[in-house]
Simulated assay, not measured.
Amino acid sequence: MGFTKKVLVGGFAAFMCVASTASIAAGDLTRRPTKLPDLVLGTEDNRYLLSQKEYNLETGKSYKLKVVSSGQTEYAVQAPEFFQSIFLRKVEAGDMEIKAVSLTELEFEQEGEAEIYFVPIKPGKFEFYSEGLEEKGMEGVFIVK
Rank of each mutant, 00 (worst) to 15 (best):
L50V: 10
N46D: 15
L29I: 13
G11R: 05
E44R: 09
N46Q: 06
N46S: 11
L65K: 00
P33N: 04
S69I: 06
D45L: 14
K64M: 10
Y48G: 01
T21M: 13
G11C: 05
S70E: 03
V40S: 05
N56M: 10
I24K: 11
Y48M: 06
G27P: 07
P33D: 04
S69Y: 04
A14E: 10
E44T: 07
K35Q: 12
P37W: 07
Q52T: 05
C17T: 12
S23C: 14
I24C: 07
V67K: 00
L36I: 04
G42V: 08
L49N: 05
S51I: 06
L36T: 01
K53V: 10
I24F: 12
L39M: 04
K61W: 06
N56A: 10
L49R: 02
S20Y: 15
L29M: 14
V67Q: 01
D38Q: 08
C17H: 06
Y63T: 04
L65T: 01
S23F: 15
L39T: 00
L65C: 02
A14C: 11
E54P: 07
D28Q: 03
F15Q: 10
A26V: 14
L41K: 00
T59S: 02
L29K: 12
N46C: 11
A22W: 13
R31S: 13
D45T: 14
L29P: 15
A19D: 09
V40W: 00
T43I: 09
D28K: 04
G27L: 01
L41M: 03
A13Y: 05
F15W: 12
E54H: 10
D45S: 15
T21Q: 07
A22P: 09
K66P: 02
T34N: 09
T30K: 14
E58I: 06
V40T: 08
A14M: 11
S51K: 04
E44I: 05
N56P: 06
S51L: 05
K66E: 11
Q52D: 06
A26Y: 14
V40H: 00
V18G: 00
L65A: 01
S51V: 04
D38S: 12
T43H: 00
L39K: 00
K64V: 10
E58T: 08
G42R: 02
K64R: 09
T59W: 01
A13K: 12
T34D: 09
Y63W: 09
G10Q: 07
Y48A: 03
P33I: 05
F12S: 15
A13R: 12
N56Q: 13
S23H: 13
E58N: 09
L65F: 01
K35D: 10
G27Y: 01
D45F: 10
L41Y: 00
L49S: 08
G60N: 08
V40E: 06
D45W: 06
A22V: 13
A14D: 10
